[in-house]
Lab assay of single mutants.
Amino acid sequence: SSPEYTKKIENLCAMGFDRNAVIVALSSKSWDVETATELLLSN
């Protein structure tokens, strides 16, 4: 995975989300952090 994707994963994990959930959310939202965060918060 690219450093850009890794940084997005790390940033969301730092907010307390599960790493696997973060990866699923990001990949399902075309790696857009904002919409992935909304998805994680709604679960």
Rank of each mutant, 00 (worst) to 15 (best):
T37K: 15
V33N: 04
W31N: 15
S28F: 01
V33I: 10
I9E: 05
L41Y: 09
A36P: 04
E34Q: 13
F17L: 04
V22Q: 09
A36V: 01
V22I: 08
V22N: 04
W31A: 07
V33L: 09
G16C: 01
L39V: 13
E34L: 06
N43R: 15
L41G: 09
I9H: 01
R19V: 05
L40S: 03
L26R: 07
N20L: 07
S2G: 09
S1T: 11
A36S: 07
V33P: 09
K29M: 11
L12C: 03
D18R: 04
S30N: 13
A36M: 03
T37D: 04
T6L: 11
F17R: 03
V33M: 13
A21R: 10
L39R: 05
L12G: 01
S27A: 12
N11K: 14
L41C: 07
I9M: 01
S30P: 03
K8V: 08
F17A: 06
S2E: 10
E34K: 12
E34C: 07
V22D: 12
V33F: 05
L41F: 09
F17M: 03
N43D: 14
K7T: 09
L39T: 11
A21P: 04
G16K: 00
A25P: 03
R19L: 05
E38W: 10
Y5Q: 13
K7M: 07
N43A: 11
N11P: 05
A21C: 02
L12V: 01
E4I: 14
A36E: 03
N11M: 11
C13L: 09
A36Y: 02
A25T: 04
K8Q: 10
V24Q: 15
K8E: 10
P3A: 13
N20H: 09
D32K: 05
S1D: 11
D32R: 03
C13V: 14
E4V: 06
I23C: 11
L12E: 00
G16I: 01
L41R: 14
A36R: 02
N11L: 08
I9G: 00
M15G: 02
K7I: 11
I9T: 02
C13S: 09
L41W: 10
S27N: 11
T35N: 13
T6I: 12
T35Q: 15
I23N: 13
N20Y: 05
V22E: 10
S28A: 14
F17V: 01
P3W: 08
K29T: 15
E10L: 04
C13Q: 09
M15L: 07
K29S: 14
E38P: 04
E10C: 03
I23K: 14
P3T: 14
E34H: 04
P3M: 13
K8T: 10
Y5R: 13
L40N: 03
S2T: 13
E4Q: 04
N43P: 06
E38D: 09
M15R: 07
N20T: 14
D18I: 00
T37A: 13
V33W: 02
K8H: 06
V33H: 07
L39I: 08
D32W: 00
I23Q: 14
T35P: 13
K7Y: 06
V24P: 12
V33A: 10
N20C: 06
S27P: 02
E10D: 12
K7G: 04
A36W: 00
L26G: 09
K29P: 05
M15Q: 12
S27V: 10
R19N: 02
S30C: 11
L39Y: 12
E10Y: 11
L12Q: 03
L12Y: 01
D18Q: 10
Y5A: 08
L40Q: 03
K29E: 11
K29Y: 03
T35A: 15
W31F: 15
V22L: 01
V24A: 15
V24K: 15
N11Q: 14
A14S: 11
K29Q: 12
L40Y: 00
C13P: 02
P3E: 13
L40M: 05
E38A: 13
C13R: 04
R19H: 04
L26D: 14
T6S: 11
E38C: 04
K7R: 10
L39E: 14
V24W: 14
A14L: 05
A36Q: 02
L41K: 13
E10N: 05
L41M: 14
S2Q: 04
A25H: 04
M15V: 01
E38K: 12
E10H: 06
S28H: 13
V24S: 15
K7P: 08
E38N: 12
L26A: 09
S28C: 08
V22S: 10
V22G: 09
L39F: 12
V24R: 15
E34V: 09
G16R: 00
E38T: 05
K8C: 03
T35L: 15
L39P: 05
D18E: 14
L12P: 01
T37L: 13
T37C: 09
L26M: 04
V24D: 15
E34G: 11
I9W: 00
D18H: 02
S30W: 04
E34D: 13
N20I: 09
L26E: 11
K7S: 10
V33D: 03
S28K: 14
R19T: 08
M15H: 03
A25S: 06
S27R: 14
S1W: 12
W31G: 14
D18F: 01
A21K: 14
S27G: 10
A36D: 01
W31I: 04
N43H: 10
M15P: 00
A25V: 00
R19M: 06
E10S: 08
A21E: 15
S28D: 13
L26T: 05
C13K: 02
F17H: 06
L39S: 11
A14R: 09
S28Q: 14
Y5T: 11
